[in-house]
Design a protein around this nucleic acid. Sequence first.
RNA 1: CGGGGCGUAGCGCAGCUCGGUAGCGCGCCUGCUUUGGGAGCAGGAUGUCGCAGGUUCGAAUCCUGUCGCCCCGACCA
Length: 566
Amino acid sequence: MRTSQVLIPTLREEPVEAETVSHKLMLRAGLIRKVAAGIYTYLPLGLRVIRKVEQIIREEMNRAGAQELLMPIASPAELWQETGRWNFYGKELIRLKDRHEREFCLGPTHEEVITDLFRREVRSYRQMPLNFYQIQTKFRDEIRPRFGLMRGREFIMKDAYSFDQDEASARVSYQKMYDAYQRIFTRCGLTFRAVEADTGLIGGSSSHEFMVLADTGENTIVYSDTGTYAANVEQAEVLPPMEMDTDAPRPLRAVQTPRCRTVEEVTKFLNVSPAHLVKTLLYSTGKETVAVLIRGDHEANEIKIQRLLRVTDLELATPAVVEQVTGAPVGFAGPVGLKDVRIIADHAIKALRNVVVGGNQLDTHYVDANSERDFHVEQFADLRSACAGDPSPRKDGTLKATRGIEVGHVFMLGTKYSELMKASFLDAQGKECLAVMGCYGIGVGRTAASAIEQNHDDKGIIWPFPIAPFHVHLLPLTKSDQTAQVTLQLYNDLQAAGLEVLWDDRDERAGVKFNDADLMGAPFQVVIGDKGLAEGVVEVKTRKDGVKLKMPPAQVATHLTRTHTS
RNA sequence: CGGGGCGUAGCGCAGCUCGGUAGCGCGCCUGCUUUGGGAGCAGGAUGUCGCAGGUUCGAAUCCUGUCGCCCCGACCA
């Protein structure tokens, strides 16, 4: 393709609206343009990348035995009411009414629609297992869209849904998708890791997220330094402490801690380590207020707390509630003498002796508090997030932490949707059974953006070959007949060799062409100019390492096909 | 939704305190020169100053409202 015949509006300056590398570069390299918050147009170059990622996904999904179909973007409210998600999904679901006042939503995901299809069309175990997928635009009215394609409100997703006769078979389907995902992200040139993830209130036995390792990731993952364990911190299990404090209990004392509210302030003032302070977090569940005790240097994990309490709604109590419950302003809550509130605690608390806790009174804390003697904990459980340095829950090493971008998620759904929507089939014994389901998502745009996060330098994008919008960027620098002739010849030769070629035929100076080519990030650049042609050569530059090779034009096609496959 | 910030030419910004002809750089158009890492000179085009009210002889500037966007926290591919 010739640059003069395609819209590639590169930007010289950094767009102010963009924060992350991938967002900046996607705008600067002319891949996308914003239409509204979290809603983008894919320009020709960006669309080529999207299509490449889609094609890789399509090939691997087909290879794994999934069949492609395409469901509608708009779906009727009734289906969503059947599963209760019409209400549960809340404001994230974009709703609309047709001319007859009938309610619809724009699909954020398609469990309802696919389950409806299954129950209408599938009768017998002989038709199973089944796995359907689609690559389609989704709408989620995100609270805060950001980072360009990383978190859009409208985005392209590959979603797949499997239907099996039983758990064992469902696990096979799940594993097939897991393996397909490994191949997909590997082919996209990403460094990633599959981690155990939260199964949330949906339940089910397994869930894995595929995390692209990048500092700009919105998730934290932990993994064993010597073993295979890896999980999202939200999910990662924390083992109960191995060793107990052996100090003899000292008598409880109240001390004045003027203007000390935070863990940092209190521990600094009292000169104790945060590991010997217990913070008391008050949570409202909608039904009651619960006190959660967490060691000062640990982080409460609200998902774990929700799971233990079996609630879907969990929020830190408002200052008014805190004051009502503790009789003191925020910052001085403690378990000692706390009335009418259940107290639950993280495992780590059990091991502690003589700790600092809030005094339930302004500017007051207790020191040398001990559980059972001074306060009663109803239940100890794993309630905190894992952190670097914790032992791996598989006992296969010590955990390390890193940031990740979630590009894919595979999920065992069990019978949640088949039960609610009565998606059943007849087994070999003629018995009616519920389909065991799985669902599997990949963010297409997010995958492309992640590739940029992992592959760029200060000049621009460095596309992995399989998803590059073009493989070769032809840069004729001079206007001689010879240059024109060689360029045209190369353009034809390289395309004949199966390479996708972008030909910068603009009347621009060398510097402009070089900079734009580096920005757009094709894996190879071929520079044609009178200087080289005088010696009978053109220059082949590899974007990744900047290495330049001189060779006769006739050798370029062979050289490139050999290089990129090696 | 809570907190912070911003809306002035295609892009990046100044002007706003203290009301009085709307500016700068880049880009764009024309011409000449230049041509291997973001050229030089000359000429030119481009704005309902986010929108709606109000105050005023007069509003980009002051007041009120509203919409949009960005950043920090709870969701997710």
